[in-house]
Design a protein around this nucleic acid. Structure first.
Lengths: 122, 122
DNA sequence: TTACATACCGAATCTTTTTTCGGTTATTGT
DNA sequence: ACAATAACCGAAAAAAGATTCGGTATGTAA
């Protein structure tokens, strides 16, 4: 990984949460694993527009913070499968609410988006 | 603003939500406004570690997507005050849940953080 | 043994986001 | 009139985060 230059404030709940699942694909990965898609390659196929490398990296971070764990603890990685830890499962209700909000507001946001683009073309 | 190079997928609820309130300070700003801190300068003082410029910019984005609105519509900005729109208020329950999760897991994350730093120092 | 799929990783590059800096304009208080 | 405060903006720079590319290693199956 890389070293952060700017100190982060982990006394703020919002910042803690974003640190753990704020990455671009993290919630998508958590969602996939929750749906039973446990292997990196399958997660990548599910999300599609994310590259394999991103999945690997975000998975590694989720692993390092104990959100997911490797369940096939073979000596060497062959059929790695990831699953949510108990802590990881506590994210699910939050994920659901975020997803619901986004889905409910999707049309509105798309419209706004379109209007802003139109306005910027002058 | 800047032009995005990578197309974004607004058919995914998670992505829509993150587009609207995924910025580093957006939820903090929404929270502040909800607490009755309505003026940019006061929001900045509340958050402190965020610069004035960031507050302005994120506020401008929240405004452009209809999350907040300017309520003192004077001819020229003097005592600008922002408040949440109806749409903006629908974010509050999500914000609360995210904040709660972060607060509940703060100690755990800090510990993990510390362990990871220790491990990386060899 | 050969070919292929899977799991990873390092490093360079590119994109996005945040920060810093130095302004302008207008208002308020003295 | 003058100083101080507030709102806001443009542009450059820095930082963070994501993507691409090209690799290694291992297991599986023909």
């Amino acid at each position: 990984m890389y070293a952060k230059k700017i100190e982060e404030d982990l006394d703020c709940g919002i910042r803690v949460a974003f640190k753990i699942f704020g990455g671009k694909w993290k919630l998508c990965i958590i969602d996939a694993i929750n749906k039973g898609i446990t292997r990196p390659i399958d997660i990548q196929k599910e999300i599609r527009i994310a590259s394999q490398r991103v999945i690997e990296m975000q998975l590694a971070e989720l692993l390092s913070y104990g959100v997911v764990e490797k369940c096939s603890e073979d000596v060497y990685p062959k059929k790695s499968e990831y699953e949510l830890t108990e802590m990881g499962k506590t994210i699910l209700p939050v994920l659901k609410q975020i997803d619901n909000w986004g889905t409910a507001n999707s049309a509105f946001v798309k419209l706004r988006q379109y209007e802003l683009e139109r306005a910027g073309e002058d």
